[in-house]
Design a protein around this nucleic acid. Structure first.
Lengths: 230, 230
DNA sequence: TATTATTGTAACATTGTGTGACAATAATAA
DNA sequence: TTATTATTGTCACACAATGTTACAATAATA
């Protein structure tokens, strides 16, 4: 057990989803501790770092092929707080023997993921009793430096949003222009001009227009779009 | 010795300098091995990751207060090649005892730095017999995945260049507009329009104009500029 | 004093975006 | 059947940023 993973190295994932006009992320709660944390994990001895993160996400979300991007590695000494890890181990009634490696200092490589909220039923891991969606403005207090990790993830997502046009990863395959605009507004936390937004995205040559979606409401039906495959 | 550093964790630095119209980086050569590598190092048990990198750069360049940015963490299994580390240890006629930790798998956190070429006399470390500037297009074959690290550093520098206006870190305190344009052209590997470049940088409100520089040439003398302090 | 090379800046064209307006249209109400 | 309502797709205009060209200013030389 102790030699299964690379010591001192962890990863954490900020998994973004979009539902009800707001941006949400996955947060786990550890058994009987009141401790909330980002879903994360460790790297097996014979495993690529990126593959370890994909494996972790697969376990939490059931999804393969997730849009995933590494954004920063957190390595301050201040994140070394063995009491917290000891508390988690004890709350799970585990013998410390075999888990000593968890009590050492860790550097954490952080990733963010964009997934379609409706594709997922979040699954806790063995040490946790829940893995749930939390709106970005209603996060519980997070352990260690996880609040800082979330803040940097959002900052990176915002700067990458326009250049990579990745907003669509938070939506189902087909979506309306209004839905896509809602995603952008939730991420950037600003109102955008409908006309300019539509013009810009159509001009980007990255969308395909499909059939209209008739919702039964008394107004013009919007077209559905999807992103062109790479 | 073995417990002084965090096992499995390394850092590498891509140190950019500018001289003779071309972008250069620092490369080290290990004693009697023909192996070339980026300057890097390891993180002490009680040291922040970012501080470890600053310490490493201070040893190679003598400079404090370097413009430094973390850009990616490399963690593929393929970078685990203990033969190479063994070769370096043997070439330095060291006993393997005490250096076993170097033969394990490492994850490397990569940073790039921008420094004023003329401020530096590169210093090799104990295992190396040289630390020298190499033009970007005349790099020697680099060990492990260091060529990939350099490529990603340049890519990141290019995308960050405009938004952060960091080009000035590669120049002396005062410089002409032409010199600054040369830096941008070397980094982006494209020609820029003199007029548009000058207009854009003056409009950015980040430059201070100083006295002219008289070079003795038969033409108008350019103004010197410096970046406004943060 | 004319010449030369380079610099600082203006002028115009082109492109991208902010802002508002308007016709098209899907359902409902009269 | 027709008017009404809300929303959508698109256009028009204004303004800002950038590409492109031109030209006067100027430091040294011929």
């Amino acid at each position: 057990m102790a030699t299964e993973y690379l010591n001192h190295i962890a990863f954490d994932s900020v998994v973004f989803g979009f539902s009800g006009q707001t941006l949400k992320i996955l947060i786990m709660e550890y058994h009987n501790t009141g401790l909330f944390a980002l879903p994360g994990g460790f790297v097996q001895m014979d495993e690529n770092l990126n593959d370890a993160v994909k494996r972790g996400l697969k376990e939490r979300t059931g999804l393969d092929n997730i849009y995933l991007e590494q954004f920063y590695t957190f390595g301050d000494v201040a994140r070394y707080q063995p009491e917290i890890m000891a508390k988690i181990i004890q709350a799970n009634e585990l013998e410390i023997n075999g888990w000593e490696w968890l009590l050492e200092r860790f550097i954490s490589v952080a990733y963010y993921a964009l997934i379609n909220y409706n594709d997922v039923v979040p699954q806790p891991d063995a040490l946790s009793d829940s893995c749930e969606w939390y709106p970005m403005n209603e996060l519980p207090p997070l352990m260690l430096d996880h609040a800082e990790i979330v803040a940097k993830a959002l900052e990176t997502l915002r700067t990458n949003l326009d250049q990579k046009l990745i907003g669509g990863n938070l939506l189902p395959e087909r979506f309306t222009m209004q839905e896509l605009q809602n995603v952008y507004e939730a991420i950037l936390d600003t109102k955008l001009h409908r006309s300019a937004f539509q013009r810009k995205l159509l001009a980007s040559d990255q969308l395909v227009r499909h059939e209209k979606r008739f919702t039964g409401k008394a107004h013009k039906a919007p077209y559905l779009y999807s992103f062109k495959p790479l």
